[in-house]
């Protein structure tokens, strides 16, 4: 089998704060093949954004990776020097963030931000070359070239998010991390953006990590889905498979919460309870306090992610016992 583009092994991330340590991510492992896309879903605070930032080593202090490996084409990102890591950012691994309205520096023109990005990785580049390359990328994003000379405040939210994608793609990375890229866009713009993302993924031949709380969104582009809860992966597998046959009670709950237009619902379905306090996480399975199928063992021992059929992995005592 070919080497995966990214292989994350047992990553744990802590935020030491005054009242204790937030165990934001625990023993997360997954791998990503070339051209593949994986979606991370879960509620706010489940550690999915933290995981995304940690791949670029841009965790906000005091956050830090306390264990594990992140192999990018076989090289452990955690072992790189800061300057080597900087060169990788943008050039090999790019990231698009939640809020396009605040992700562009308001004081510099779009052209300037493209030029800066190119120049930081390729000091010889001239302004003219930068403009040409940026123009080409903008064309792919259906944005008029003249927009290059405008400032962020002159562009709409959807356009700014496309510019962010453009800034992400300009250096031809082979891995793009998109963290809630459509959260602040309206539904129509979101739909267009998703089509664009799917198209670009093919054209630029990139692997994609899509982080979202929106299951529907993830279902549209991701080949595989990882469901996170309380900093851990609860279930991971083929996207269609997970939707058709969710195994983990949490996944089941999440899918149950997606409103369905065909069903005659009076109230939106919701999951009782709230995400766990990660300073003092529940003993055993972190989902156990909210789990409708909770058993005694769930409150005592933490289940580990175990292989099932079709590359599916689940961390739940319901299935571990059955084996």
């Amino acid at each position: 089998m070919e080497q995966p583009i990214l292989e994350v092994k047992n990553i744990s991330i802590d935020y030491p704060i005054s009242i204790g340590t937030v165990e934001a991510v625990r023993n997360v492992s997954f791998s990503l093949k070339e051209g593949e896309s994986i979606g991370f879903v879960g509620e706010s605070g489940c550690g999915k954004s933290t995981l995304g930032l940690s791949l670029l080593r841009l965790l906000r202090p005091p956050g830090m990776v306390v264990g594990g490996q992140m192999l990018y084409h076989g090289t452990d990102l955690l072992s790189l020097k800061e300057e080597e890591m900087r060169k990788l950012r943008g050039n090999n691994i790019a990231m698009v963030f939640q809020n396009p309205l605040t992700s562009l520096d308001p004081l510099y023109s779009i052209e300037d931000q493209f030029f800066e990005t190119l120049k930081e990785h390729n000091p010889q580049i001239t302004r003219q070359e930068a403009v040409e390359r940026a123009g080409k990328v903008l064309e792919d994003l259906s944005i008029d070239k003249d927009r290059l000379y405008e400032y962020p405040h002159q562009l709409s939210g959807g356009m700014r998010q496309r510019i962010m994608i453009g800034l992400g793609l300009i250096l031809n990375p082979d891995l793009l991390i998109a963290d809630e890229p459509t959260t602040s866009l309206d539904v129509i713009v979101e739909a267009g953006f998703i089509d664009l993302l799917a198209r670009l993924k093919k054209e630029y031949n990139i692997s994609l990590i899509l982080i979202s709380h929106n299951l529907g969104l993830v279902a549209e582009i991701a080949d595989r889905i990882a469901v996170m809860y309380g900093g851990m992966i609860m279930e991971i597998g083929e996207a269609g498979d997970i939707f058709a046959r969710p195994m983990h009670p949490y996944t089941e709950g999440l899918i149950g919460c997606v409103p369905n237009i065909k069903m005659d619902q009076e109230k939106l379905a919701s999951m009782p309870g709230s995400p766990p306090d990660l300073v003092t996480p529940p003993a055993g399975c972190r989902f156990s306090p909210r789990c409708p199928k909770v058993m005694d063992i769930c409150r005592e021992k933490t289940p580990v992610l175990q292989d099932y059929k079709n590359g599916r992995k689940v961390a739940c005592w319901l299935y571990n016992e059955a084996e």
Binding site: G90, F97, L104, D105, G168
Partner: peptide, 8 residues
């Protein structure tokens, strides 16, 4: 953060 993520 976005600028850092682009390797600036």
């Amino acid at each position: 953060l976005a600028a850092r993520a682009r390797g600036v």
